[in-house]
Structures are given as C-alpha cells and as structure tokens.
Design a protein around this nucleic acid. Sequence first.
DNA 1: GATCCTCGAGTTCT
DNA 2: CTCGAGGATC
Length: 673
Amino acid sequence: MSDLAARARTLREALARYNHQYYVLDAPTVPDAQYDALFRELQQLEAAHPELLTPDSPTLRVGAAPRDGFQEVTHRVPMLSLNNGFSEADIQNFDRRVREGLGLTEVDYACEPKFDGLAVSLLYRNGVLVEGSTRGDGETGEDVTANLRTIRAIPLRLPLADPPPVLEVRGEVLMLKQDFAALNAAQAARGEKAFVNPRNAAAGALRQLDPALTAQRPLSFFAYGVGEVEGLDLPPTHALLMDVLARLHFPVATERAVVRGVAGLLQYFERIGQQRAGLCYDIDGVVYKVDAFRLQQALGFVSRAPRFAIAHKFPAEEALTEIVDIDVQVGRTGALTPVARLKPVFVGGVTVTNATLHNEDEIRRKDIRIGDQVWVRRAGDVIPEVVAVVLAQRPDNARQFIMPMRCPVCGSAVTRTADEATSRCSGGLFCPAQRKQALLHFAQRRAMDIDGLGEKLVDQLVDGGLVRAAPDLYTLALEPLAQLPRMGMKSAQNLLAAIAHSRQTTLGRFIFALGIRNVGEATARDLARHFGDLPALLAATPEALQAVPDVGPVVAQSIHDFLAEPHNRDVIARLLEQGIHWPEVQAPTVQARPLAGLTLVLTGTLPHLSRSEAQVRIENAGGKVAGSVSKRTHYVVAGADAGSKLEQARTLGIQVLDEAQLLSLLNQETPSP
DNA sequence: GATCCTCGAGTTCT
DNA sequence: CTCGAGGATC
C-alpha cells in the first residue's frame, strides 16, 4: 500500500471515530476545527487520486452527484409492518395469543419507543455500507444509498476487524425535534416555507434526488433490528441484539427495556407516555416484541405481520372544527360516498379539509349535520375521520344530509339494495365519473402501470372527448394531446411512451385492470394462474370459476356477468387489437401441478433456495405455503436451524422434507397423495 | 352456525 | 388504514 493510501485510510478511520463520538455518543473528543481540517485533507487527497475513494469514505456524506430517479430494490427479507393496538384490551389479547401460541404462562418482552420516521434498510457487505433503501411496500423499496450516506449517525463501515459477509440493519430515519425547530427557523429566515412536521421534513430530505440537499438536512437514525445476516452469530434475544448493534456504532433507543408479562407492558406504556413530550424525537407509540428469537420463530406470521410483535399506539390527537358542507363522490363501482368538507384544521401533523363519512347509515348513526362542530382525528394517523358531534353547539340552521335521488355527475337514478350500506349510481359507464375512475384503475401502478396518467389528466381526456374507454388510450395522437391545457410536447410524448410501454404486461395485471367487481389484484392473479390464458377465462362457466381458490358464488357471478356484457367483450377485443400482450402462463395441467391442493410450511434455511424462491416454486406447482404448522399441513420443509415448526411437525406426525425431497416432489409428474 | 382470515374498495395529503 | 363482505374452516 502506498503512503497516500495509508494516509487516506488513517483519515477515514479517524473521521469515522470522531463522527461516532459526536453524532451517536454525543461526546465529541476533538474540536470541530480539527475535524474539518482532517476532512478537507481527505477530500483533497481523493480529488487528486480518485482511486483512493472508497464507498465508506466520510467525504461521501456531503453528497454525491444528483440522479435522475431512484432504482427499485427488492428486500430479500421482506420489511413487515406491525399490527396496532390502541387499548389495554388489545394488549391483553396480544399477550394472551402469544402465551397460548407458546404454551407459556408468562413471557418476556423487549419494549422500545415507536419512532415517527421512515423505515429504511442498510446493507453492509464485508463491513461496508453498500446499499440503503426505503421500506417501500415492504417487498420493494427505493435505493437511497447516496442520501443515507449523508446521515452522520449511520456508520459507513462496521468497527470490526473481521466483519460478516452480509449484515442488513433496519431502523428509522427521523429528524430530532431540536433539529427540526432549527431547520424551520432557518427556512423562515430565508423567507422559505416551513415544514409541517419532523416526519415530513425527514421524508422530503430522504427523497431528494440531489444527495447534497439531503446532506444539508439534519437527519438522524436509530436501529431497531436486522434483516438478512450471513456469517454473524446472532444473540438469542432482541434486547441482546440491540446491544450488539450499539457496539457496532449504531444509535439505538436508550428508552428500551425488557419487561415481564402484560403488567410490565402496560407499565412501560405508561412510563413512556409520561416521558413523551420530553423525548428528543417524535414517537407515536411503543413497540413490544417477544424477546427470545426462538419464541418469535415459533409464533410466526399472520399474512403480513408478525404474531410476536405489536405496536401500542398513543391515542390519536383530536381537533375541533366545523362541517362546512357534505358532498357526494362517485367511485369506480358507482358507489356514492358522502364526504365532509371541513373548515381546515391542523391535526396529527397535517391540515385536514376533507373526511369521508362512508355512507348514509354512518351519518345517521353519528347524527352529523351540516354546520355542526365536530371532533376530527386521523384514524391510524392517516385517514381523517369524524369522531363525534358536539351537540351542545349545534346551530339552529344545521342541515341534515340527504342522499340525492340522482347521481350528481350523470343524473342517473340512485339505487340502494336492502343488503348493502352503499348507494350506487345506476348509470354504469354512461356516467363520466365511473368512466374516469375505471380509467384511473386501469392505469394504476398495480394494473397496467401507465406512468403519469393521473386524476387531472383523466379528467381532461374524458371531458375533452379524447378518451371514452381504455382502448382509446392506445390510439391517442400526439397533436391533440399536446394542445390540452398545461400539457406541452414533451409531456405528451412522455405520456404516449408510458401508454406504449404498458402494452407489455401480464395476464394477471390485465384481468385486474379490467375492473371486474369483486376481482382485485390477488383474485386476478389466481384467475390468470388457474386458466392460463384469456380464451379459457372468457369461456368459463360460473361453476368452472368457482374452482379457482377464493372464488365463491358471488365472485364467480361478478366475473360471469362482466364477461357476458357485450360492451366489455368489445373493450377486451379492442385492447388486444391494440397490441396488449403478455408472456404465456405455464399451462395449468395436472401434470405441471404436482402439489395441487397441498399445504406446505417452510422452516429454517434451505441450502440453495431462498424462502421466497421456494414459495414461488411451490405455488407454481399448485401448492400453498402457510405460515404455521397445523393438522391441515401436508408437508413441512425444513432446512438448517429449523425452529419449533419442525418440532410441531413431529408432534403432529407430519411428514418432514428436506430441500432435495421438495425438489423431487416439484419435479414429479402426478399429484402427490 | 360461528369464527377466522383474506381480499376488495374507498379514502387523505404531500 | 379501515371497514365490510366473501370464502374457508371448525
């Protein structure tokens, strides 16, 4: 190694050390000026000798070159969400389910504050931070590595002589209250707009395309767990894992604790609630996790959330405001939804002006009238909700809401069946509102994924008579499009490119995009998998449809009715004429589906297949992958370090397979008994 | 017939 | 995110 390389390395190590002392331990050991001098020396060295620049260099913290957009990142271990509890009863139920699931009388829980920030994943390969991503939908997020590198509290290199090949650390990016206040003061001094709350400020900073801008925002990070790990023995409990992360120089919440039983949980909640206002960051509750990883594994998951953890949320903030009016919105299926127009009110970190009232019955039940003073909160801290009316303050001229007899958009009759709470516009696709919603549904990301075709544009296209139904999108010409208001040549070209791009799709997305009542993303995929191609679906009788998993009489009838409608047939035919296509789905013959009707449970780490690969293969073979072992499980597939699921399989006398046996099962020609 | 779980649909704001 | 309904299971 040359002298220069050695010097660069010394500088990097010293800066990393000072950084950790300053930003994580809050105990600087050198004056700022000295830090700055070392930093500049390293910057100059790297500028003169670019080959000395490493991915863990602190100079990257001031921001790399701006980018065009963010790459997608697939999380190899999904980033799950937590179930929420609001009441003592919720927490008691949680504890009861945990105890029953484990067969224990008392359980130890690791508790920590629930940060109100953004979940991110940090991937360290051989001890160096190589990739950082947002949580996204839990399966895939965005690559924000350059932005995360600017956060001083995040180590760029693990302080280990012999780092593990892979360590994925998960945690929350947030802005400390004091930093937020200072940032807003600075914004105000410059005459710029203030941020609404620390969470939004942090979210905005993380999504900057120019990392140099992110670097100017004072972001912090706290770790709360790990994802993928290779070559590192994890301690047996969550609390000990947090200690390990702290030793690796990650900031972790100091308010964490291990408590016993539900009484301990409730005491902890009480204590943190009292400390809340004095904490240096915003929190929206606390998180409880079963402390022992062995027990966590035994409990497993229900759909997208772990059974071994719960978020105990503080009650949502409520605010008083006035119902100025009640409007009616028309949805894709013609559902008429009353929406309260509110006098703008700041609640739960944002200004709320609208709140859904769901349906007539709901309005009657809460006795909401136009002109009333009402309490408003953000349900689950997101969607505004009218909680209650202040009857004592009802003005004399308060008006009751009456569901219109005719659709406010198209004038068709409004109907309501006895068994449904919703009123519907009977206009069908004659109603512009329904046509617009159908188009938005068609274009949405999980359907045909036409980028840029949003509400405003759909309004213009439909109102301007350019588009009546989805097939018209594919015959749009550039000139008339470019003449729309607020639409230039460039945007028009982009839109046409996005539309053209959507021609290549999958059968499942296409079926979902059609907008058949009661057929969402999952059912559309099931239909695609079951029938394999479109003609088979078009020809299916209601009985044949019910053979598809999760399709019963109601859904089957919806599909049949939709496909029997000549207009819908015409739309499908025209879309195909416009060149919409998809790769052929594997023929769903009995031979190709050796696991049809079987339920398997995966446990432990398989030698070659990842868990998700194994799942995809099993599902492609017609099998189901369940989260926990029951007497309905046909096989348990066990790999290395298999946990209690394996034990349970043995107790219940369920056949256990290894990876090789699974593969031979997948390859066999006929269904297994 | 009761209960659990999953999916669909509608919704807000930035 | 939440609600409600449809489907599956016990």
